[in-house]
Design a protein around this nucleic acid. Structure first.
Lengths: 202, 202
DNA sequence: CGCGACGTTGATTTGCCTCAACGATTGTGG
DNA sequence: CCACAATCGTTGAGGCAAATCAACGTCGCG
C-alpha cells in the first residue's frame, strides 16, 4: 500500500498549480523534475524541533499536523494539512534557522516535496512560479489570519463550532485529542463541551 | 505638519523594495506612478468593517492598528503597523469581499497606497514585483505565525514579556489599553501584571 | 492477552474577567 | 486659556471559564 503511482501523484499537484495559473508543458516537466515523492508512516516525523525545515510539502493523500511543544511538554497544534494542502515551517525554511516546531504524520501520508535550493532554482528557471507561490502563500496567510482571529475573539465553544463548520471532513477523521489541542483546550473540556452541545440540540 | 515631501516618502518605499530586490530605474518610476500618498489623522479609519479593503498600505510614518470588534463590542487587535510595515486585509482585498475588520490610525500617519487593480497592473508590467511581494507576504506570514504561536502556547505574562522583547519600541509608544487588547487581556489585568513584574525585579 | 491511546465524568483550583470607584493626564470647544 | 469631558492607568472584591488531577471504561493493535 506504500506504492502509489508517482505519475498520478504528480498529476494531482499539476492540477493544483494549473488552477492558479495555466501551465505550459515545460512547466509540467519542471514540476515533475523538481518535486520528489515521499511517504510517511503514521507517527513519523517530517520535521523535529531543532532541525532546519528543508522541505516544502504538498499532501497528496493523508494528514499531517504541525505543533509546538512548550516547556511543560504540552502540545499546541498550529495546523493540519490534508489532501491538497501545504505544510512547511516557512521561517525555518527561508532563513535556514533551527525550527521550534514539529511536523508529524497522523495518518499514513503521501507527499510531494521540494527543498529550498531547488525551489530557488525553480524560481530562476521559471519566474512564473513566483506568481504561483505568491498566490499560494497569500491563501495560507488568509487562513492563518482567520485562525488567529477565531482564537483571540471567541470562546472555546464558538471556536469548536467554527471548526466544525470550516472543517466538517476533519471532525470525524481526527481523534478528539488532536482537535482539542488545535482549539487550545484540554481534551476533558472538549468532551464536556460536546456533551453540553448535544444535550442542547436533542 | 500634514505636508511631507512626496518624493522623500517614495524614496523610503523604494529603499524598502530595493533591499528585497535590486530595482532598475524604470521600476522606480513605476513605483512612484502607482503608489499614492495619503495622510490619516489620529483616530481616522482606513478601513471599516463592512467595506471592501481596496488599498495595500505602506506606513511611512505613524502607526495603524487592525482590529476586530466582536458581538459584545469588545475590540481585539490583530496587528499594529509602524514605519516600514504593511497593512491590509488581504482576504477582502483579493476576493473583493466585505471585511469584518477595522483599520485605524492611532497616530497621525503618512501612508503610501496601491489599490488592487493597480497592483494587478503592476504585476503585469513588471513581473519582478511578483517576487518582491512574494517575499513580503512570506515575511508577514512568518510574523503572523509567530503571533499565533505565542497566543496559543503562552500565559498572559509570557505573552507580555515576549511582546516587550519583540517590540521594545512599541512598549512606550503605545497606550497600555492597546497593548492589552493586542495581548488578548483586559487593561486591568495588564496593569496588575506589570506591577507584579516590577516588584519581582526590584 | 495486555498495553497504550482514547474518551468520559467528578471534584477542586486558578488565571483572568467583570464591575466599580478613584486620581492623573490629555484634549477640545467655548 | 480655562473648564469639562474623555481617555488612561490603578486598585479592590467577587465571579466564571477552563485547567488540573484523578479514576475508570473502551477500543484497537502488536
Amino acid at each position: 500500500m506504500q506504492e502509489k503511482n508517482i505519475n498520478s501523484q504528480i498529476q494531482v499537484l499539476i492540477d493544483y498549480f494549473n488552477k492558479l495559473a495555466p501551465l505550459l508543458n515545460e512547466d509540467k516537466i519542471l514540476i515533475s523534475k523538481f518535486f520528489k515523492s515521499r511517504f510517511y508512516r503514521k507517527r513519523q516525523y517530517i520535521l523535529q524541533q531543532g532541525d532546519i525545515c528543508n522541505s516544502f510539502s504538498f499532501v497528496v493523500k493523508g494528514c499531517l499536523r504541525m505543533y509546538k511543544a512548550d516547556q511543560k511538554g504540552d502540545i499546541h497544534i498550529i495546523q493540519f494539512a490534508t489532501e491538497n494542502w501545504w505544510m512547511i515551517d516557512l521561517g525555518s525554511f527561508q532563513n535556514k534557522e533551527k525550527s521550534e516546531l514539529n511536523i508529524e504524520a497522523i495518518e499514513d501520508t503521501w507527499t510531494l516535496q521540494i527543498d529550498s535550493d531547488d525551489l530557488i532554482r525553480l524560481y530562476e528557471i521559471a519566474p512564473k512560479f513566483n506568481f504561483i507561490f505568491r498566490i499560494l502563500i497569500e491563501k495560507s496567510f488568509v487562513s492563518l489570519q482567520k485562525r488567529l482571529l477565531q482564537n483571540i475573539s471567541s470562546t472555546a465553544e464558538e471556536r469548536y463550532k467554527g471548526f466544525a463548520e470550516s472543517y466538517p471532513h476533519l471532525i470525524n477523521r481526527l481523534p478528539q485529542v488532536q482537535i482539542a489541542s488545535f482549539l487550545g483546550i484540554t481534551p476533558e473540556f472538549l468532551s464536556r463541551l460536546k456533551s453540553k452541545l448535544s444535550k442542547r440540540t436533542s
